[in-house]
């Protein structure tokens, strides 16, 4: 065993990349849930974004335009969900699961012409000077633009939810839609926007897989990442900064367990491969058993259909 061969700097750098798809998808879902809507179709929107982004990138020759296409694809699929749950008041849990099924089928049908095609390369964003800083350089400043986009979005969502007036309204809608309605806020319109934002973010997360990490289109490319994203939202107790920690924790443990394997650590592999899930549970238990339990509660109207009774 040679644990010294695990470099913490490189580990942290990989963690930022490994966490990005989950982070993006989870961030979108966080906003959706803060608006009081539970969309379990993240996996379906992610994979739709993965193929929409891939197809756009191949058609335009630009990976960055691909991400735009991915966001549009994810958002378009999420609008289907929005119509069903907001106006037709269908059950959110079941509709979300159906959306996953639908999205997986749609993506693999749409992806058939793209088997074995190579995606255009992603421009590197080597920030000059900063990337040369020892330790911090490799961790923070040698990634592709989407990594920074994800971080910026976390900051943006935090600012929106906690500092912007519209964010306050969104939270009010999520906490108690009847009260928000009584105050004259457009509950359904806000929720529609939140759902579309969630779909776009999930699409970006999926495209990060098909355009940066793999980068090819293969069926089932998301391999369950959408479910992890859902779990991370709960882990974060619906708060953006904690979401970042959750995604890094999960991504970090996933990367660390593989590093430990490569370093021949004397821990059974089957135990190592369970650790990301077990550690997530453990940390959540520690958080929830500590102080501030009351602040862990889910948005009050989460999962409930809204009908304006006049």
């Amino acid at each position: 065993m040679d644990l010294t061969s695990i470099s913490p700097v490189l580990l942290l750098a990989s963690l930022m990349v490994a966490a990005t798809p989950i982070l993006l998808a989870a961030l979108g879902e966080l906003v959706v849930e803060r608006a009081g809507v539970l969309n379990l179709g993240v996996e379906g929107m992610m994979i739709t974004g993965a193929i929409a982004g891939f197809a756009t990138a191949v058609a335009t020759g630009s990976a960055l335009l691909g991400f735009v296409g991915a966001a549009a694809g994810g958002a378009a699929l999420s609008l289907l969900f929005a119509v069903l749950v907001l106006w037709l008041r269908s059950n959110q849990v079941a509709t979300g699961l159906a959306l996953t099924l639908f999205g997986l089928g749609l993506a693999s049908l749409a992806g058939q012409p793209y088997n074995g095609v190579r995606a255009p390369p992603m421009p590197e964003l080597d920030i000059p000077l900063l990337s040369g800083i020892p330790v911090l350089g490799p961790i923070l400043f040698r990634h592709d633009p989407v990594v920074y986009l994800a971080l910026a979005l976390v900051g943006g969502v935090w600012w929106f939810l906690h500092r912007a007036r519209a964010g306050l309204v969104l939270r009010a809608v999520g906490e108690n839609h009847d009260a928000a309605h009584a105050l004259g806020y457009k509950v359904l319109r806000l929720r529609l926007l939140a759902i579309a934002f969630g779909g776009a973010c999930a699409g970006l997360g999926g495209a990060y897989l098909s355009l940066v990490r793999v980068p090819q289109w293969t069926e089932g490319i998301t391999a369950g990442a959408g479910w992890i994203a859902l779990a991370i939202v709960v882990f974060a107790s619906w708060r953006p900064l904690r979401l970042l920690l959750g995604a890094w924790l999960f991504g970090g443990i996933s990367v660390l367990q593989l590093n430990l394997q490569a370093a021949n650590a004397p821990i059974p592999v089957e135990v190592l491969s369970m650790t990301p899930y077990l550690v997530t549970i453990l940390v959540l238990v520690l958080i929830s058993s500590g102080r501030g339990r009351a602040r862990l509660a889910a948005p009050g109207s989460l999962g409930q259909p809204f009908h304006a009774s006049r």
Binding site: L84, A94, T95, L99, L101, F102, G103, L104, G105, L106
Partner: peptide
């Protein structure tokens, strides 16, 4: 799969 999703919708 797509068809099943549609039916559920």
């Amino acid at each position: 799969q797509l068809f099943q999703g549609m039916l559920l919708f």
